[in-house]
Structure formats: structure tokens, C-alpha cells
Computed example of a mutant assay.
Amino acid sequence: MMSEPYDLRKVLAELNEIPGQYHETNREIDPEAELSGVYRYIGAGGTVMRPTQEGPAVTFNNIKGFPNARVSIGTMASRKRVGEILHHDYRTLGKLLQHSVENPVKPIQVTKKDAPVQEVVHLATDSNFDIRTILPAPTNTQEDAGPYITMGVVLGSDPDKTMSDVTIHRMVLEDKDTIGMYIMPGGRHIGHFHKEFEALNKPMPITINIGLDPAIAIGTTFEPPTTPLGYNELWVAGALRKEPVQLVAGITVDEMAIARAEFVIEAEIMPNQTMQEDINTNTGKAMPEFPGYTGDANPAVNVVKVKAITHRKDRPIMQTTIGPSEEHVSMAG
């Protein structure tokens, strides 16, 4: 019998078998500025308030206002834990990653019935659709511009569908069907594709994939020149797991989604359109950055219009990270 393919649930189950690496709590937690504060003292490490410690990954099972969802944080907040997740000596992870880049394993496509992430579908055309009531996206501090998606892997392609790529961006929930996405100048390959769509004055279809096997998130952090334009970092994740990442066709957009994600947002980046990141709060702040300070809100983030949200039926897990933490430093490294 073939073993189940890797996804976040399989990884959390494996971590749960290793003492000190994983913690679940059923105590109610407020996603607004409380969840990140609790985690900061349990397991953040890195640049948060002293004393820092290398604590467990944490899953919060009881999220205020979101009875059917969970939030997980800190999976990759320790090199040793990443070694356990990838079944590799943490001291030579760099070599493992280099080997994976050089020996890519490309994704495969599966049907909707084999894609757990499409078990439940919310369409933006539904009368009560509101991304802010579906996604338990945390707010890190009272000053944040809003609830943030910090561990959403954006999958997009060029207009001719000759190249696809994945990147991670910070994304704030702005209203019921709008996300503000910060694409850094020169914004890696997604930014390159978006510029091509803008030249055609066309919206760019994307999927935002949340709640993933950490091998995917780790692969996604690669940048040029290691992974040049045309190299899709999902190939790295396939190599790390020695099994291809499974993709499924989007329901409302002409783009692929990661089939074993927990949540997928199907959306379009609008051409030649921006908005103020903190339009709802006007605090002038975005969210905590990895050096430890709260970053300034951007006056002009890209406008992303949501077409649908799909997710697993059984209490989907929102994966998140907090800016100043060992997790961010570890991924960046």
C-alpha cells in the first residue's frame, strides 16, 4: 500500500511523535493580536522579547469567531525541527536543498475528487461571501493594517502559460473580496508575470495556497540566481519529498492550486491598480517585520480581487507566521 502523500496534517502528526516539538491547545484564542502574543512566549525564538526560547510548533484548535477552523504557527521555527520534518540531518540541510534544486521533481495534476482542498467551495458571488469571516487570518498587533496572510504561497503563470512559479508575499484582508498584496520591486517571478499582464491590461489569475507541507514553503523561498526565471520552486519541494507536488485546476480561475493545501484563495491581481495598505486602520503601520520592528504601511499595494475560497471539510488549518521570529529567519536563511 502506498503511503499518504505529504501535507501539513501528515507533518504535524509526525511532529507530535517527537517530544517537545509540537503542542496543541483547545483554549479559546482571539486571532486579533492575542494568538501571536501567546506564541511569542511559547516558541517564537529569534528577535522577539527576551528571554527567547526554542519552543514547539503550536496549533490553536479553538479560534474565537471561527468555530470550524484552526491556526498553526511555528512549524519551521527551528533548524532541528526542519531536519525532523525533512528526515535529514539539520546540519547539512543546505546541501540537501542544493541537491533538490539540481534534481527537480515536477508536479502532477490530479482531479477535483483527489484534491482535499476543494471539498468545500465558497464563491465570491454567494450572497454572504466575506473572506474575513472564512479565513481566520491573525492580526499580530493592535497597530496592524488588518488580518494578514503571512504563509500564503502564491502560484501564478505568465500570460502564455509557458512558465509558472510560486512566491510568498504579505497580504492583508481589506474587505469582503479584496486583498492588498505587497509585491517587492523586482518582485521575483510573480512580479515579472504581473508586469506582463499589466502590459496587456489584463488581470492575472493566481491561487493563494495556505496550510502546506513545509517542504513547499521552504522550496518557495528560493530566489534567482539559484532558481532563474522559468524554474518553478514546486520542483524543489517534489525533490525534497521524492514525490511530486499534486496540483488541481482552479474552479473559478485559469490557474492551478495545490491540491493538498488546507485553504486556497482563487483570485486575480488587478492590472495597473493599487490601494493604501492600511486603508481600514490608518495607523501607518503594516505588521511586524523580521528584524523586530513594525513595518510601515505601503501607500500602494497591489489590488487582488477574490473569486472563490476553497478548503478542506474537516476543520481546515490556517498556517501563519509572525514577523520577528526564528521561523522567518530560518526560512530566509
Rank of each mutant, 00 (worst) to 15 (best):
F290Y: 06
V105L: 15
P299A: 11
G295K: 02
S72Q: 07
Q273E: 15
S127V: 07
Q273V: 00
E327R: 03
M163Q: 10
L86G: 04
H23C: 13
G94T: 13
Y293L: 11
F222G: 05
T167P: 00
G43H: 12
I108W: 05
P5L: 12
M331D: 14
N128W: 02
L135N: 06
I108P: 00
A237W: 09
P224T: 13
E289W: 03
P225V: 00
I279S: 12
A13D: 05
P107Q: 07
N302W: 05
M256A: 08
E4D: 13
M318R: 01
Q109L: 04
V105W: 13
N232K: 08
E119S: 14
P324A: 03
D7P: 05
Y231K: 03
G333Q: 09
A124Q: 14
V11R: 04
D126S: 14
G55A: 01
L96K: 14
Y39A: 13
D7E: 09
L12Q: 11
V245I: 15
P107C: 06
D158Y: 01
G191Q: 07
V105H: 05
T167M: 10
G284F: 03
I190P: 02
P271F: 11
V82N: 04
E34A: 06
G74P: 07
H169A: 03
E174I: 14
P214E: 02
A267N: 04
T150S: 15
E233K: 07
A137W: 10
M184E: 11
N209A: 00
A57Y: 05
Q319W: 01
H23I: 04
R132D: 01
F66K: 08
Q53F: 13
T150W: 00
R132G: 00
Y182L: 12
D114F: 12
S330K: 09
T133M: 09
I131P: 10
T227W: 10
I317N: 07
K202M: 07
H87L: 10
K106L: 07
V117T: 15
T178P: 01
I265C: 01
G250P: 01
I29D: 09
L35C: 06
P19H: 10
N298K: 12
K80F: 11
D254M: 11
M184C: 12
P324S: 05
S72T: 11
L240Y: 06
